[in-house]
């Protein structure tokens, strides 16, 4: 009621209530999806026994390195070398701990696959697990925050689906033609989950509805456009596969980024 006004004459207001994650984190949430999704594709290719070159695992490795590079570059702790503790601790309740193992494992496995060392199928099977972890953990990171009403448990599904959509949509653009059907399905699923997400908020308790209003106020049109892009992209797949893939990827990137950025809002304080 008087929050904004009161902050002028009172002391502090709420100093830690501003957004804590900024664009590099948003970028990470996209890059980790691309890296994880491409790694999953590598695992799929390795397991399916199809034609396999060093290029795709190398690309996956490069994407993982790029993602980790972005994370490291924006980390306040980048010169403190504390990230080593991700691997010296056992924190199974922490999504980020799983994500760290997922990305590190995927990096190692894609490197082995690119070099052609060791059993391709064995590495592929392991990579299936680690890349899935990389795809799953962002949703887990968000959904764990019970106090932030826009980060609902539905993100546990929405994030990996849109993540895979981004990765495979890009792969489709780069010539992996056989992914067309999968991209279409993922785009439809993404749009449907997005709709379900909004419906869930609307049907939820007061805090959820207030959060939905906040989302609508901040970026409602953009979020709707993102879902619409995913929704229409399958219809264009046959005739304009590139346009469809681009639409689906853009919609997924936008929807995820909005949820990460705006979702940082806290539930009602009183």
């Amino acid at each position: 009621m008087t929050g904004a006004a009161a902050s002028i004459t009172t002391f502090y207001g709420a100093p830690n209530s501003a957004a804590f994650w900024h664009w590099p984190t948003l970028l990470h949430f996209v890059l980790v999806a691309v890296a994880g999704g491409v790694a999953l594709l590598v695992a799929y290719r390795a397991l399916s026994g199809a034609r396999f070159t060093w290029r795709l695992p190398a690309l996956a490795l490069a994407l993982i390195v790029l993602d980790l590079g972005v994370l490291w570059g924006e980390s306040l702790a980048r010169w403190r070398l504390t990230h080593v503790y991700l691997f010296l601790s056992f924190q199974p309740a922490s999504a980020i701990w799983w994500g760290a193992w997922g990305l590190a494992g995927s990096a190692a496995l894609t490197a082995l696959l690119a070099l052609g060392w060791g059993p391709r199928r064995g590495w592929g099977a392991l990579l299936l697990v680690t890349s899935s972890l990389a795809l799953l953990y962002p949703g887990l990171v968000l959904a764990a925050n019970a106090a932030r009403p826009l980060w609902t448990p539905l993100l546990l599904v929405f994030m990996p689906v849109t993540g895979l959509l981004i990765a495979w949509g890009l792969a489709l653009l780069l010539g992996q033609r056989d992914l067309g059907v999968a991209v279409g399905a993922l785009a439809l699923a993404g749009a449907a989950l997005g709709g379900l997400y909004l419906a869930g908020l609307a049907a939820g308790p007061g805090g959820a509805r207030a959060a939905l209003e906040h989302l609508w106020h901040e970026a409602g049109v953009w979020f709707a456009l993102a879902l619409a892009a995913m929704l229409v992209s399958p219809a264009l797949l046959r005739r304009y596969p590139a346009v469809a893939a681009l639409l689906a990827v853009a919609g997924a990137v936008l929807a995820r980024s909005l949820l990460v950025e705006i979702g940082q809002v806290m539930g009602p304080p009183f």
Binding site: W79, T82, Y85, S89, F90, Q91, P92, A93
Partner: peptide, 19 residues
């Protein structure tokens, strides 16, 4: 099968002057 709160014993501490 994890213990949610693992007081102070989570990590093996390395001598790290940077941190």
């Amino acid at each position: 099968g994890a213990v949610m709160l693992a007081p102070e014993a989570a990590a093996v501490k390395l001598p790290n002057p940077l941190a």
